[in-house]
């Protein structure tokens, strides 16, 4: 893979993750449906995870595992820490989404609507 192609791919990954974050924020902040808000929050999460993993990649890197044939390849291994962190963050994001959806179910039972502008018992 030549230099320019790699740069191109690298920037498209960063671009894609920033786009995901923006799409997610749009969904979470603008949309009125509770389900869409939850989906938006998950998309933001996905964007952050993607950019975080991409940051740890090095050109021509291999998996960070010392296996036969790769004993002396420590310098060519991708950074394992972002991957470990993102794995943790994915699990946390899953838990938050699950709690959010169960709250949406409760809200729907209570108010018979999913539109956030119709649920306003609590105000400043």
């Amino acid at each position: 893979m030549d230099e320019s192609l790699f740069k191109y791919i690298e920037f498209s990954i960063y671009g894609a993750s920033i786009l995901l974050i923006l799409i997610g924020l749009y969904g979470a902040l603008v949309k009125k449906s509770l389900i869409k808000i939850v989906i938006g929050l998950s998309i933001v999460d996905a964007g952050v995870h993607l950019i975080f993993v991409a940051m740890g990649y090095i050109r021509g890197g291999t998996a960070p595992i010392f296996s036969p044939g790769f004993e002396n390849d420590a310098s060519r291994m991708v950074d394992p820490i972002p991957q470990a962190l993102v794995l943790t963050a994915i699990v946390i994001g899953f838990a938050v989404t699950a709690v959010a959806l169960s709250l949406v179910i409760r809200l729907y039972k209570h108010h018979d609507t999913l539109r956030i502008d119709e649920i306003k018992n609590l105000k400043w």
Partner: peptide
């Protein structure tokens, strides 16, 4: 649930 959803958001 409404309060919790705000907090969660």
């Amino acid at each position: 649930a409404e309060a919790a959803f705000k907090y969660l958001f």
